[in-house]
Nucleic acid binder design. Structure first.
Lengths: 221, 221
DNA sequence: ATTTTGCAGATTGTTGACATTCTTCAGATG
DNA sequence: CATCTGAAGAATGTCAACAATCTGCAAAAT
């Protein structure tokens, strides 16, 4: 317990914590895409100097959450519909690969865990509990990508998902699409349970491709 | 011309230039994987203070070229064979997607350019000119990924290629494999020229998968 | 009236100094 | 002889001040 806490502090420097906090603020919607991010304001807010703030921003810049314009400052990245579509395409390719890999190497415990997330989403849909649905939805995707056994794949996938959160059209899922989406989840998980890489690849690719289609259709309305 | 130069300076701050330079030093082999990178030494070398150096390092950290251990310093990232294999798998997925996209949208000029790179590599092989082969090889890959029309895809692909340069086994290509590799290039380009997305996808995926196999086989010897 | 110029305030860029942590190694201890 | 302790030096972490640049607005010029 203590060793764990020490280990936690050991690889979490101040700039890293600050980076995480700024990311939370951006993705939480406190800053909107296009908004300017003021270094001094952040330094004041966290009660530290601008040095660590700037280091955190350089890291966030590489993550693709902000745009830096020299001598002008940093701005929350603004995604066009075309850029969001591009990110979806890359995400689909990576997620399909993750499903394929996991279908090869998944343990029984992995399959059980994935099924439990799907079940939790079933229940959440029945209760109209969107909060839980969103949480479980992310947990399922993260579990698949993490357990696929390719750290590079997981890192790049999660970075793309973060970027897509910048493209928040007021996109409350309709009850229908939520139900359909979880059916896609079921197919993904069962393909993994069947240890069928090709089927898992297709199911995972299809899931993201469908999500992209839904979002883009939503955008045009 | 002047406006271009001004524009060039406008979006290239000192930390960005420093980052590029440090990257060059790492990939150029001046620092070996696992080596410690000393902030003060870099500051002295470039004649600036440690602030911009640290900002550049935070960016490089996200790029995956260095590992940062709080209070200990930064080290050139050391890739295991398994990690390199993982990166190759992700690279294959992204490159296949790029080939697929380019097969859909390539202009005649694009096809001409790709063919010229393949021809240049043919000539380089005939002359045993490995220097030129490597340059043209990278140029072909970069052209495909850049002209695919997905900036996110290109950025992530190029980042992976940079990371793989950290895994330099003394891997001089054998004349045979170079010839075989360029035959794969030809199939990729002709699939694009034929505007056949599925064939291009397969050709591009196969090319990277084969390269991975070659590298891994080389590693075991 | 529109554009240009120039100043004042604010913000970013960079620096050198100070604080903290780590590394190294000599000396003490069992 | 091996291990532990602790102090000196070096490196990283943080800060506050200064320099350079940009923004916004008011006054002047066309």
């Amino acid at each position: 317990m203590l060793a764990q806490a020490i280990e936690l502090l050991r690889d979490r420097s101040l700039p890293m914590l600050i980076e995480q906090e700024i990311e939370r603020v951006i993705l939480g919607g406190e800053y909107a895409p296009g908004d300017k991010i003021n270094e001094q304001a952040l330094a004041l807010r966290f009660g530290i100097s601008r040095g660590p703030i700037r280091e955190a921003l350089r890291s966030l810049d590489r993550t693709g959450l902000i745009d830096t314009i020299p001598n002008r400052g940093v701005f929350v990245r603004r995604l066009t519909a075309a850029q969001a579509a591009d990110i979806y395409d890359v995400r689909a390719a990576l997620f399909a690969l993750a499903g394929q890999c996991l279908a090869i190497r998944a343990s029984e415990a992995d399959v059980e865990r994935l099924r439990s997330h799907v079940a939790a989403m079933d229940e959440a849909v029945a209760r109209d509990d969107f909060e839980t649905y969103i949480t479980e939805n992310f947990a399922l995707h993260e579990a698949i990508v993490t357990r696929a056994g390719n750290a590079t794949l997981a890192a790049h996938y999660l970075a793309l998902v973060k970027q897509l959160r910048l493209y928040r059209t007021r996109n409350l899922m309709l009850a229908d699409s939520v139900h359909a989406s979880n059916e896609e989840h079921r197919e993904m998980v069962e393909a993994i349970a069947a240890r069928d890489p090709a089927r898992a690849y297709a199911a995972h690719f299809n899931h993201v491709a469908t999500a992209k289609t839904r979002l883009m259709a939503n955008h045009l309305t």
